[in-house]
């Protein structure tokens, strides 16, 4: 009887321990990543190729998402603002929402699926086929060779892709407002500038940078700690995507609380 009652608590305790251990190992990998920054000769050559993979290859999906988000925001705003609220608030809503929330978060989520999964799968495969061991035997510090360029590339490219996505989203909302909502450009732009603060841009970029950091380090973490063949790789990939998506949303709330 006591077994039955205490079992859930024991499982919960075990779960919490596992979680804490995971966070701890992630922290250690992150710390090692920072330490590995001094092996500039190792990672520098790899940075640009990784930036191409993280950033350039992700631009189409990010812009695609932003395009439709902008259109939908514009339409929904005009639907919501009836009567007393002037139509130029469509511009306010599209601009603010794209910049503060949807631009960074949707781009982050899309890239966590693309970049995070990619990193976890690649490093996971390298781990289970002993390629990471091989790197070590060739005197390459694996963290400097594999993790640093991916993390740096993500930190650099996430805000860049996000900025483009925001611009495309706002442009899409604008065109929608003109074409489908009978608004004038002047009205839309008036709304756009009305509550604009330069901090909005900073905020979006801070968010995107933090998302890039988290997606890359989490992808590397699960990739590095992959065990057991192709199945293990699949497992790591899934977990990397799930965890980094969750972390993005938590981080989003964190920034909203701390910075706004």
């Amino acid at each position: 009887m006591t077994r039955i009652l205490s079992q859930p608590f024991i499982s919960m305790g075990r779960g919490a321990t596992l979680l804490a251990a995971g966070i701890g190992r992630w922290g250690m990998l992150t710390a090692e990543t920072v330490r590995a920054l001094r092996h500039v000769d190792v990672w520098l050559r790899l940075l640009v190729p990784q930036m191409a993979r993280v950033g350039v290859d992700s631009v189409p999906i990010a812009l695609f998402i932003a395009l439709f988000t902008g259109i939908v925001l514009s339409l929904q705003a005009s639907y919501t603002f009836t009567g007393a609220i002037p139509l130029y608030f469509v511009g306010v809503l599209v601009g603010k929402t794209m910049m503060l929330e949807l631009g960074p978060v949707l781009t982050g989520l899309a890239l966590s699926g693309r970049v995070g999964a990619n990193i976890a799968a690649e490093l996971g495969t390298m781990r289970v086929t002993e390629q990471i061991d091989a790197l070590e035997t060739l005197a390459y510090p694996p963290v400097a060779y594999l993790v640093v360029p991916r993390v740096l590339a993500s930190i650099i490219m996430f805000p860049i892709v996000t900025a483009l996505a925001i611009a495309v989203g706002i442009a899409a909302g604008w065109i929608t407002a003109i074409q489908l909502l009978d608004m004038s450009t002047a009205e839309f732009v008036n709304g756009l500038t009305l509550f604009f603060l330069p901090f909005d841009v900073t905020y979006a970029l801070i968010k995107a940078t933090s998302f890039g950091f988290m997606v890359a380090t989490i992808g590397c973490f699960f990739g590095f700690h992959t065990r057991g063949g192709a199945e293990g790789v699949g497992h790591s990939t899934t977990r990397a995507v799930v965890v980094s998506s969750m972390v993005i949303l938590v981080l989003d709330a964190f920034w909203a609380v701390t910075l706004l």
Binding site: V48, M51, A52, G55, V56, V59, G95, I156, M157, P159, I160, V161, A163, L164, A167, L192, T193, F196, P198, V201, L205
Partner: peptide, 22 residues
């Protein structure tokens, strides 16, 4: 290509912010 993407976004951010600030 990497260069182009970076430049594009720097331009977008800079001019976008300046424009929105008037």
């Amino acid at each position: 290509l990497v260069g182009v993407v970076i430049l594009a976004s720097v331009i977008v951010v800079t001019f976008g912010t300046l424009w929105l600030q008037g």
